[in-house]
Design a protein around this nucleic acid. Structure first.
Lengths: 212, 212
DNA sequence: CCATCATTAAAACACATGATTCAATCAATC
DNA sequence: GATTGATTGAATCATGTGTTTTAATGATGG
């Protein structure tokens, strides 16, 4: 029974690729149904509307990532232990890079899709994502404050914001750097990429502490 | 003779605001001509096409910024002097935040527009921008390599990429953080904002050197 | 086999898009 | 003041958009 893909999954997979490549604003229903080799009406039949299809994709990908982030953070703070900054940053970023499981997209496409989900429609994300999103924000700021009590809250929030920028930009435009530099930047695997970002942001969070 | 604004500038100013708020993909000709209180045909008459209007705006803003970046970098490397990392980062970022001169947009809108110009159509930027863009990339990588000769080139390129992400995300979504945190992050002026980013990235570039 | 349901297909829907036409208007120059 | 060139205005173009409709098809259970 695993032979033929259902229309619904055809639409989902095709849409995921198109969204990753072109973004949420630039993909039309025809683009989708053509790529999925499916009738125009199928999208509205199976998903209700184009917008709901997009929301479903966002939820399918962002929700598990946020769950994983919370799980990792909890693991680092078990028994009331104070998580270290490095652990917090890892819990914040890693899930975006390791949850490639679900679809058969290439790594690069998956990263781009995650980046789009985060960035493209900042502001009005689907209702189903809001509560968990708030929880993530709160949990991580609390953990950060516990880890670095000397850091003024404002500074901390902005540095978390910068960290977000590092991650989002790498997800979305990491491939652009490779093209631009014609490989001079190397082709780090996920783990190296992740450690590179964590190193950078970890040091950034400790700016003004010692050393320079 | 300074009394009445010409149709062309009406279109330009209206378009700038719309692009800053909604991005390059989501602004229609009607949106523009309505906001500018101008006839539909005016855009095609004065600019040739919607696309060329967008390109003109991009060039109007990005070119002077890139010039300023190069100028600042040259100033820091005058007489063959080796620029310090901090100076390089400042030359890389400051022009985006200080070139608010041209239009009467609010700071926030101007930042967003700059962010969109950088991010939205990464990949296929207007031909008029390509040569200067390449020059900026090259000059800054050379300067960085001179400033931090011990840093592997690949690591350096990725850290410059991260720096770019910090800046772009702050330009585009700095206001989102303020809303989200309801002011808990403070409301730093341009100078403080800039120093905050430079501190973060400076430390990030020195990750693995000393301290932690 | 038939009836019933879910699914698919083709066509049309109303509306938005960027671009163009052509006459009306305006300003400057001879 | 008439003429010329640039600019504007209203209407229209062909095409693309998301959605809906209606009929055909498919599979499933009585």
């Amino acid at each position: 029974m695993a032979s033929k893909k259902t229309t619904k999954t055809c639409i989902l997979e095709a849409t995921e690729c198109l969204l990753a490549e072109h973004g949420f604003e630039s993909v039309s229903l025809r683009d989708i149904t053509t790529a999925a080799e499916v009738n125009i009406a199928a999208v509205n039949y199976h998903f209700g509307s184009k917008e709901r299809l997009f929301e479903e994709i966002q939820c399918r990908y962002v929700n598990p990532v946020n769950e994983e982030r919370l799980r990792m953070l909890e693991l680092a703070t078990v028994n009331g232990r104070t998580a270290e900054l490095r652990e917090i940053l890892e819990a914040f970023m890693r899930p975006f890079f390791t949850r490639v499981t679900r679809s058969k997209m290439s790594e690069q496409l998956f990263f781009k899709l995650m980046g789009r989900c985060i960035i493209d429609q900042q502001g009005d994300l689907p209702d189903a994502l809001v509560p968990q999103f708030k929880k993530v924000t709160e949990s991580f700021t609390v953990a950060l404050h516990a880890a670095e009590p000397d850091l003024p809250v404002g500074t901390m929030l902005w540095r978390l914001h910068y960290t977000f920028g590092v991650m989002a930009h790498t997800l979305l435009h990491g491939d652009a750097l490779m093209k631009l530099t014609q490989g001079a930047c190397g082709d780090p695997d996920i783990e190296a990429q992740l450690q590179g970002m964590i190193d950078f942001c970890y040091a950034g969070f400790h700016a003004g502490k010692g050393g320079a």
